[in-house]
Design a protein around this nucleic acid. Sequence first.
DNA 1: GGGGACTCAAAG
DNA 2: TTTGAGTCCCCG
Length: 727
Amino acid sequence: MFEDSYPPRVVPVLVPMPAPGPYSYAVPEGMIVMPGSIVRVPLGPRQVAGIVWDGEGGDVNPKKLRPITQVFQCPPVPEEMRRFVDWVAAYTLSRPGMVARMVLRAPEAFEPERAVEGVVRTGLVPEKMTAARKRVLEITENGLSWTRSGLSHASGVSTSVIDGLIAQNVFSRIELQPPPVVAVPDPGYGANALSEDQAAAAETLKAAIDKGGFQSLLIDGVTGSGKTEVYFEAVARALEKGRQVLILLPEIALTQAFLDRFENRFGSRPAEWHSELSPRMRERVWRQVAEGRIRVVAGARSALFLPFEDLGLIIVDEEHDPAYKQEDRVFYNARDMAVVRGHIGRFPVVLASATPSVETRVNAQQGRYQRIELASRFADAALPTLKTIDMRKSPPARGSFLSPALVEAVQDTLARKEQALLFLNRRGYAPLTLCRVCGHRFQCPQCSSWLVEHRFRNQLMCHHCGHHEPSPEACPACGALDHLAPCGPGVERIAEEVVAQFPEARTIILSSDMPGGTKRLRLELDAIAKGEADIVIGTQLVAKGHNFPNMTLVGVVDADLGLANGDPRAAERTFQLLSQVTGRAGRTGKKSVGLLQTYQPEHPVIRSIVSGDRESFYAREIGEREKAMLPPFGRLAGIVVSAETRAEAEGHARQLRRAAPPAPDIAILGPAEAPLAVLAGRHRFRLLVQGEKRSDLQGFIRQLLERAPKERGSLRVHVDIDPQSFL
DNA sequence: GGGGACTCAAAG
DNA sequence: TTTGAGTCCCCG
């Protein structure tokens, strides 16, 4: 008997820390675990949740071996999900435990939800009948069970009436399943009438679902072409087949309108998953997704790591959106990992965008993704007429930033009682402050970029690293008072100009850093949709999928901004942003106009925006990328190592060049160029490492990380996805 | 002598 | 990633 338990059974367990692989734990006698089981294990001085992994427990010093404390009573993490974790870890050069940590992000969800106490009729009748008791009995005639409070509410009696009936055995207490977070969606609830284009596209998607197996599809349709309705049909079909569905959205916290549309189509809301969920809700959603009780989740990128019981479709809406990139700890692009997830789970993945990323277009061109085009706007929604305003010929008055032509257009719009949107992708009041006496420029002490003045907060802020300081009264270099000059506009400064020009108009600024946070922004967006504002001044936030039905003028204050900042994706980003923002106009068929203030009206990006010729943009950009060997072409431009100082970056670069041939191409970039990834925290320099094969680069980076353990913390590796090395 | 800030190694 | 231990420094 004693012998039976020796040697103890040992299993690998993935624990939430950056160890190179799973740790081994002993399984106490009588405990039943299987791969995927979520367990509580001792780890150093604490207890953590981990996932029993596949294979044998590695050989460890038996003295170190400790037993699993407990197996949680929740569904094991499915095989598909475990392969996905392994794949993501290998691809992103992160430790599997850190990826597993993303799966286990709902610590209280591993224990079953507490059952709710309910009551049900026993069949007995009360000795004495009263009016209140009669009402209760009528309502419960059908024999269904009720919660105590629910029943008291429904029958309009106090709970003590029900307690009395329980005491007389007219009702008995039962345990009810905890209530679902959301009702089950009904695929046949509110099917929309589709245009011919839309119907054809929907058929293609449904065929992919019927066929089964992995496939990635791209819905490529101009803004307003009704992509959402199209992929809703795919969602409906997957639901009919009994599969779960994940809809990924960038920044779901702001997309309340999406949830309404879903509800109109399916009769109930999808479950939400994003960082602003309350811990309680997070637990319930996680648990119910694992149990298969939730059929559709609409979530931010982290929803990709929910333990779906039977996922059968992923939609990635606005697939080009940079918000899909996670750039800390585990670096990944949720759009690409969604494709991988679908491949592992053998189901279709649908990407949707009006302005697909160049990578995705290349994938479509090469036949990896099936492209479905929606060329026209839906129903009466007409695309706005777009024009440039040449700022060399029609300059703004001195000290202002809006050209007379744009001011006039705003005036006309107000006169027609319609709304105008002025777009400038720059937060704050002025991007640079300088001293007119000595020429001093305010710079960030941490990362040497310019400090942006924010008048509302009365602060100078670094948009790079978050450093901020109070706005100064005097120049710190020469001490001169009243000679600090703001240079260039931010949205706050445009708002100042607008208020001066149109004092009677109702003006709203929409910028992610306005006080009040997400909640306030949501209210503001609602207010605008209801017509409670005349002029909206906004940063890129306004480009994102909000519907402003009465918006007939979009003015782009600086269409050139972002075209020349050294980022290899600058042209693409600008094209996407300007297409999306001008697409905000004319959603309900009113004649609408987009005006782009520019100093370079002949610039190819500006021209393709104005002419509406998307294809010329993609053709040209794909060609440029190919020439420059940038993503998604040629040599993988995929790995970025950030370091704190240039010397350190050079050290890393030397090491990499010394590493076994073929040595990769390495570029060292300062904060100003900063392409491909946001500089995180204190990291000021980055090496961009290019190589022939992903596996070579992975080798280099591993070596680098191993040889430079002292630099841990000052060294960050970022993987920029190379879509051609997938799968 | 104790507390705070910091670095380091270890966790099965 | 988290933790505890060790070290240094400062302080009536």
